[in-house]
Structure formats: structure tokens, C-alpha cells
Design a protein around this nucleic acid. Sequence first.
DNA 1: CCGCCGCCTGTAACCGGTTACATAGTCAGG
DNA 2: CCTGACTATGTAACCGGTTACAGGCGGCGG
Lengths: 334, 334
Amino acid sequence: MKGRSATIRDVARHAAVSVASVSRALNGLNSVHPETRARVVASAKTLGYVPHAGARSLSMARTHAIGVVLPDLHGEFFSEIVRGMDRETGARGYHLLLSNMHADAELAAQAMRSMRGRVDGLIVMAPQLDATGLDEALPPGVPAVLVNARDPGGHAGMRIDNAAGIDALVAHLVGSGRRDLVHIAGPAGNIDGDERRASFAAAMARHAPDRPVRIVAGNFREEGGQQAVAALLREDAAFDAIVAANDMMALGALTALRTAGVDAPGAVAVTGFDDIPLARYLGLTTVRLHLAEMGARAVARLVDTLEGAEDARTLELVTPELVVRTTTPDRTSP
Amino acid sequence: MKGRSATIRDVARHAAVSVASVSRALNGLNSVHPETRARVVASAKTLGYVPHAGARSLSMARTHAIGVVLPDLHGEFFSEIVRGMDRETGARGYHLLLSNMHADAELAAQAMRSMRGRVDGLIVMAPQLDATGLDEALPPGVPAVLVNARDPGGHAGMRIDNAAGIDALVAHLVGSGRRDLVHIAGPAGNIDGDERRASFAAAMARHAPDRPVRIVAGNFREEGGQQAVAALLREDAAFDAIVAANDMMALGALTALRTAGVDAPGAVAVTGFDDIPLARYLGLTTVRLHLAEMGARAVARLVDTLEGAEDARTLELVTPELVVRTTTPDRTSP
DNA sequence: CCGCCGCCTGTAACCGGTTACATAGTCAGG
DNA sequence: CCTGACTATGTAACCGGTTACAGGCGGCGG
């Protein structure tokens, strides 16, 4: 409509006061005569004045925005984390600046740099970057919380407690009468995959120390679960439970078992990891990740340090919750 | 570490040139002597200089960010739209500023205002706001694309083509031998629910004009589908197909039919709307929404108008895609 | 030798707010 | 009546960039 929208100086002129008074009046600050304030507010309304957040940020050195750098996450995972962040962020009066999908480390680094001056802090989930590469990429002086990073280095970190999740699953299986467990692992090199594999070995040592630790390779995808089961059947292995590193592979394993004529979950119990929506429909026993909570906590910690609290710079774990369904029936009470 | 991070003046001092030269050198602009440029680049690197995006935005009156105002969307829906936006936004060199979850119109309006000076344009999905309320809430001079708005008024709009989706489903059902279709509607007042209900009537008139238009109430949730089926069975209605207004209700309908002993999909075919991930697993015939594409198109249109193209201010529809699965078996070729 | 032109660079204004500091006015206490 | 404190307001610097404008300088044609 009109050329450009009203600035604070337009309001000042219209109300016949100085810009300082306008600023003070509109921010409810210091001492402003009630009558002056009323005049300013009226002028602002008639001019349709909306403060320019960018200018304010510049002069206050505070943007009230936090940046989020994520890899190319899929569906549920992405949406849950971001939802949690968004909830907390809104509650604390901040905004979220997204920068998703970064193919390689260079792009991710560039994305992080391009946020300097736009955000007060960063939440970074960058599987491609190691600790030192990350320190180089982070704009100096911008606090950060690392989510799911292999090594948070000197920063605050958030991570899923994979060990607790796997331990709960193994304990549950052993407790319901299973003895010969097999783990279908995630892709090598993936943080969660690696942790879950190691945790499986640890959990077996704790709950079934007399049994061997059996692990077959997988890839977090449905076919991976199918192929793993096919390999197991081919070598005629004896097992009565499968602990898949995530739900999708558990699904694949389940269908592969059934099409091969194996009684699942009767003869072979199956567990997953993640609790995707499908798991509920298929009755899959699994662990729920509380991703939204993790996102919210990451924001909460970041905002806390932004607002002066001590920066803990510690790694905080989010404990998954065991969800028992029908793929792990109890064998101990026949 | 060091007190505050380097500014352009620090670089200028270090390289013994003026700030203007630094700016020109780093932006690959105009005419800068190669040697000078090299010196500037070297200084910038040793000082760890990262440009301050906020300051740049202020002076250029361009933020290269676009704001997104969404209601509290759940899972798949939210994530798909945002994913599409993010993809396009990254490809065009922009950022995405999220402001999710706005309980009422007032909060949504406030969220939109708070974005002035932070973004170059807005993508708004605000079911609570009507056209005029929206025009008041929009900061002046900020172009906007409205997603799923009942009436885009004078703005550009994006919407799912509900009529095309319902028509495809009804055509498919009638084509496979069904005649007595029942629609389980969405909640009254919801845009998509209303459109789908009206479209169902229109589609029936087109493809099965001799049959009555039967509609029962629903609420987009699983129980809604169950309750609708219960009501139908209670009144002993004769029907051989159910067209649910979304997938969740279709699921509810399916399970309710089966637990009531009705042969589904043999005696009663069932269709949904949305194509949520579960639909594939349950073999539900439905239509796929291409939400990511809608988000991407919204961004593309917005960026186009920001970069000078003609602003079409037109309502653009995204056509859903029919996905035929097992809940609608063919009856015409016995 | 002069003037002009093109290349390179510097100075300073500007974007739209906030805020330290100065100042004018009012009022009470001594 | 003077002084000090306090309130209300204005002036101008500042945040960190971009860029219009003004030179300075060297080369070249006349």
C-alpha cells in the first residue's frame, strides 16, 4: 500500500515527541508521563506501527531466536524433535530458525556460520561432523547444544540413553523366558547403531552371562531386518528372540519370520527400538524415545545459559521407556 | 573465549584498509585489487570473522528468511509440510523461521507481528483467522502465502484439491462395482472436512446419480470411524462401501466392521484420505496428499514474488494421487 | 603537457531501533 | 532563596553491516 511501513521516527513525529520517548513508552520502560505514553500509543496505532525486530536485535545484541541445524531426518523423528523444541521455544518467548538437510560437513558448517547474528544460540545435530570439525564450524561466541553427537567436546549435549533402552529390552526378554537372543544391528558408523550394538553385548553379559552374544548386520531399514532373518535361517541358527536396533528392522524381521513359516512371536519373540506409530498397530514390543522431550530439554538448557544460568556443558541423557506389547509373550508361566 | 567476536572494522584495521573495501572484497563485489582482496581474506580468516547476518539484513532491508505460522499440527502432517518448505527454502538460499502452535487468533496475530523485520515474507496456516482478521494481523508490506485458508482474500493461496481426491475415490469405488456408498465426514467447521463432505455429494451425483447421498458424522479420529460404523450397523443400513474423510477414521471403520463380523473389504470396501504411513501396512486404499510438494510450492511462490516476479495472488491447488490397495477389491470381474 | 577516463579506495550516511548522558522543570528541605 | 533530588524528555552515539559519493592515481590520446 503505502511506500514503506512506519518506523519509530514516524511515530515520534506524529506524536510530537522524540524517538527515545516512543521507545520507552512502547516498551513500558522507565519513567514516561502517562499522557505522553497515551499519545504515543495512539500514534502508533493510527500509523499501524510494528516494531522492526531486526533493528531491535542489532542494537540489543539479542535476537530471541535459536537456530537448529539438522540432518535430513525423516518423518516422525524430525517432526517429534522439532515439535518439542517449538513448544519450549514458544513458552520461553523465542523463535526457531530451521536449517535442515545438510548433505555434507561443508554445507552444515556453512549453514551454522550463516546463522551468526541471526540467532542467540544453536542446537546442532550433525552426524557428519566430529568434535573438532564442529568447533571450527561453530561461530565464535555462540553457545550451542549438541544433540546426538558422538562427542559433545566442550559443549552441552543431549542424547538418547541407548544403553538403558537395550538393557530394558534384554531384561524383559530374559525375564519372560527367552535365552538365545540375537541382535540385528544398525549400520556401522552410526552413533545409535554402534551404541546399541555395544549395549546389547553389555546387557547380555549382565542378564544372560552364560549365553553367547550373537549379532548380525543390519541397516535400520525394513529390508535389513528381512535379510538378517534370512541369513539366520540359512545358517540354521537356534534363537528364540530377536532384538532389532530399530522398529523398521523389527517389522522386517517379523514378516520374514512369518513368511518363512516360523511361529512369531511364539517361537521367536521380536523387539524394536523407537516406538514409531506403526509399532502400536503391529503390537511390537519396543522402547519409546520421547524425542519431543529431548528437543524441549535442548531448548530449555540453551535458553537457560542464554539468560545467564551456569552453562553445565554436560551430556544429558533421555531415558527411553519400555513398551511391552504382544511380540514378546511370557513363557515362564505356561 | 575472546570478549566478543570480530566485526568488519576489526578486519579493516587488521588488513589496513577501509570497511568499504572489506565489504566489497568479501562479497566478491565491484572492483577490488586482487592483492587487497587477498589481504582482506587473510585477515578475515586469522580473525575468525563471520559476517553478522542481522546487521546485513538491516542495511539491505532483506533478511533472506521466510516465516512460517502454523497451528498445532500433528506428526506426519506437520513434518511433511515443513520438510517440503525446508527443501525449497534451502535450495533458494533462504532460511525458515518457525512459529508453531497458536492456540487462538490473538496469539497467531501476535506471532505474525513479531516477525516483522525478521523475515521477508510469511507462509500462514491459520484456521482460526478469517480473511479480514488475517489482513489486520499481517504486518504491512510483508507478502504472504496462505496455506489451507478458507478464503485467501487478496493473497496467494495453496490448498489441497479435496474435490479431486474424493472424486477419484468415488469413481474408483463405483468403477469396481460398488453402488451404496456412505461418507464418514470430518468435524463440521473444519475446512477440509466441509469440502470433502460437499465433494462427496458432488461426486455421487456425477458417478452414481441414482443413489442417495448418505453421510454420517465423524471427527477425523479413530474412534470417530468406529462410532460411525456402529451407528450404521445399529440402524441396519445397507451399504457396500465407506468413504472416510481421512485415514484414521477409515482405520476405525475397518476394525469396527471386522469386530462386528462384517466381511471387510469383501462386503464393504473402505477408503481413506491422506495416505499416512499406516495406510500402506493395512492395505488401505486412499489418496496421497503430497504435502511436501505443497510446502515447497508455497515457498517457491513466495520467493518468486520476493525476487520481483509478478505476484499471482491466486489460489493454487495440489492434486492428490489415488493409491489403490486391498481394501477396495474389484467386484466387476468375478 | 593537459585533460579525461577507469580503476581502486576511503569517508560517511544510512538501515531502525536502544540507551547513556545531558537538560529542563518541579518541588521539598534547610 | 538556594540546593539537591527526582521526573520527564531530548540529543546523539551505537549495534555491524552496505553503498552513494568523492577523490587519488596512473595511463593514454590529443
